[in-house]
């Protein structure tokens, strides 16, 4: 599997080098985007949903076919209050999924809008973050190091770190204390620690589609191991369509939704829209795309505002 992926990556890389970027739009015919379509759709996303912005990324990873100041899109600090499986259980109970592509088992699931439309209801489900008690056992020194435990031996060396200098500070009356919500151990399976995500969208030159990347942080704002990110991916997709790879513009490994079927699914969505008499515009591509991504990462509440009528029974 890993080998296959590597061979494929090498092939893809070679193809990308040999073929020029798509310049002609094949948006309606194939569900894919040219480079300029991607930039146009990205500009529209940034203007309608200003929590998204264009970024430059690592200079060494700059893609010449994209504008220097519009290499990829990112939105930061997106909350993820529950793990994906808890939402899936609700879905199944509600019968709320449609298979967009049932020719094989790789079909994408489309949702009827947001997992749980009623935000208030969800807030009611969660105990007030402010009142949750601090877990005393979680001294900061014990925060696990990124990527496995080999460093654990090293961490106790901080035990003698002089913590006495600022003793006056906990008594500072103007500092609000105990703000850190650390959830109880899950008596209720739905309550887990709040994670946050940086969600980025890059242009995949080979598949000529956008590609979503996830960078996760735990509730104390330390990076999540990419393996743990898979808990926030629909279990139909974890390890299958969601893989852990090098980010094209950032250092390190990140979880990504593999774009191999994006074009086909987008084509289907566009066909549905057209059959309902809606003429899809290329600058709305990313809104449709992000709505479709919500079926893969149902609990990561990124912004895409527009409530599209996909022609289905969406409310």
């Amino acid at each position: 599997m890993v080998l296959r992926q590597r061979i494929h990556d090498a092939f893809k890389e070679t193809m990308e080098r040999m073929t020029g970027p798509r310049m002609v739009s094949a948006f309606k015919e194939k569900g894919v985007l040219s480079v300029s379509d991607f930039v146009k759709a990205g500009d529209n996303l940034v203007s309608k949903c200003p929590t998204w912005s264009w970024e430059v990324g690592e200079p060494s990873k700059k893609k010449v076919y994209l504008p220097a100041n519009k290499q990829y899109l990112i939105t930061r600090n997106v909350p993820c209050l529950r793990r994906a499986y808890s939402v899936e259980e609700e879905y199944e109970a509600a019968g709320g999924e449609v298979l967009l592509d049932n020719e094989d088992n790789d079909g994408w699931l489309a949702t009827h809008g947001k997992p749980k439309e009623t935000k208030n209801e969800e807030e009611d489900d969660l105990p007030s973050m402010e009142t949750l008690e601090i877990s005393k056992g979680r001294a900061i020194q014990s925060i696990p190091s990124y990527f496995g435990g080999e460093e654990e031996d090293d961490i106790p060396d901080m035990a003698d770190f002089d913590d006495s200098g600022n003793l006056v500070e906990p008594d500072d009356p103007a500092t609000l204390r105990n703000q850190y919500f650390v959830a109880h151990e899950p008596e209720d399976e739905n309550i887990l620690r709040t994670r946050t995500y940086d969600v980025s969208i890059t242009y995949d030159k080979y598949y000529q589609t956008p590609r979503v990347w996830l960078t996760g942080y735990d509730e104390s704002r330390m990076p999540l191991q990419p393996e743990l990110v898979l808990e926030d991916v629909s279990q139909d997709h974890a390890h299958k369509t969601v893989t852990i790879e090098d980010h094209p513009h950032l250092p390190g490994k990140h979880a990504s939704v593999h774009p191999c079927r994006h074009g086909a699914v987008m084509k289907k969505i566009i066909d549905v829209l057209m059959s309902r008499g809606v003429e899809p515009e290329v600058d709305k591509y990313l809104f449709l795309f992000l709505k479709f991504m919500a079926s893969v990462i149902p609990t990561i509440e990124y912004d895409y505002t527009m409530d599209f009528d996909l022609g289905s029974s969406s409310s």
Binding site: I134, K136, R138, A139, I140, Q141, I143, S145, Y146, F147, G148, E150, E151, D154, I155, M158, F161, D163, N166, V168, E169, P170, D172, T175, R177, N178, Y180, S220, M222, P223, P251, G252, K253
Partner: peptide, 23 residues
């Protein structure tokens, strides 16, 4: 004036350690 502001988690200094050997 006096000054405060070291980041804390609860009452402890928010001293952090991250290992990036893997990457």
């Amino acid at each position: 004036p006096k000054v405060v502001g070291w980041e804390r988690i609860g009452n402890r200094l928010a001293l952090r350690c991250i290992s990036l050997a893997e990457s």
